[in-house]
Design a protein around this nucleic acid. Structure first.
Lengths: 133, 133
DNA sequence: CTGATTGCAAATAGTTTGCATAGCG
DNA sequence: CGCTATGCAAACTATTTGCAATCAG
């Protein structure tokens, strides 16, 4: 599944990397420590240092994207391009909102500043579906 | 200048707090270490622990706002409500864009999810004015 | 005065690095 | 086989905490 993506970036396909990517895909968004715990369940000898090293490489290569979160350590997600993030004020769950178009705001900002922007990150804070019941 | 704001929140008005707030206002956006260095220039005995403690309190009380930044430690700004941030990919400078209206995107997200959001944070990445020359 | 705040030092948490070994290509 | 990647331990950086002294109200 991720073999191809790694090979294309000239990164070696190691089980650690596969498990890291698989786990992030499953979790949607994962912090370093969560990820280490989860990967250890299937690959018990994996070290925290390996998680750190790989996260850096994978972010560098745009396979992953870092999502900075208000008041916490960042989480990481598979890079699927710009989209809106939601962060629940109660449970802290991070989720994606794929259907809100960020282009109009980007266009407005470019119009006002006369510059082009490479990336837009939008984070909304509120109560998520499960917590509002 | 900030006496009133502190008093309203029932926080004691100490020179350290005044200098922290003054410095953030002057710098626009400041990280913990920058802030410590700058405040030390005028109040040389201030400790890093005091900076940390006050930043927490001031964020808690909504006097300051934390701005999470992709790949770095967060910076802090005087809380002036939701607005768009720019981060220069070259020099790293963080700046504000006050005139882009975030309400339409917020409304769209609320429409799609059926929930209300308390806050929207938008970060644009690109090359800033000075760096594009 | 009295409780909040400060500064220091020590403790804790988070991240990076160096190096010997293992394993991908 | 050669070089990258891993795991470990140690180093380093960042943040928090406990406590005695200080200061604002």
């Amino acid at each position: 599944m991720y073999d191809r993506i790694l090979r294309d970036k000239e990164l070696k396909v190691t089980p650690q990397r596969i498990f890291i990517l698989e786990e992030i895909r499953k979790m949607g968004h994962a912090g370093i420590e969560d990820l280490h715990d989860k990967v250890k369940e299937v690959y018990s000898s994996v070290s925290l240092a390996t998680i750190y090293k790989n996260i850096h490489i994978l972010v560098e290569e745009n396979i992953l994207r870092e999502v900075p979160v208000h008041g916490r350590k960042p989480v990481y997600e598979i890079n699927i391009g710009d989209h809106v993030h939601l962060c629940c004020s109660k449970c802290g769950e991070i989720s994606d909102l794929m259907d809100v178009d960020t282009a109009p705001m980007l266009a407005e900002a470019e119009k006002q500043t006369g510059h082009r922007y490479e990336r837009i990150a939008v984070m909304l804070q509120g109560t998520c579906k499960s917590c509002s019941n």
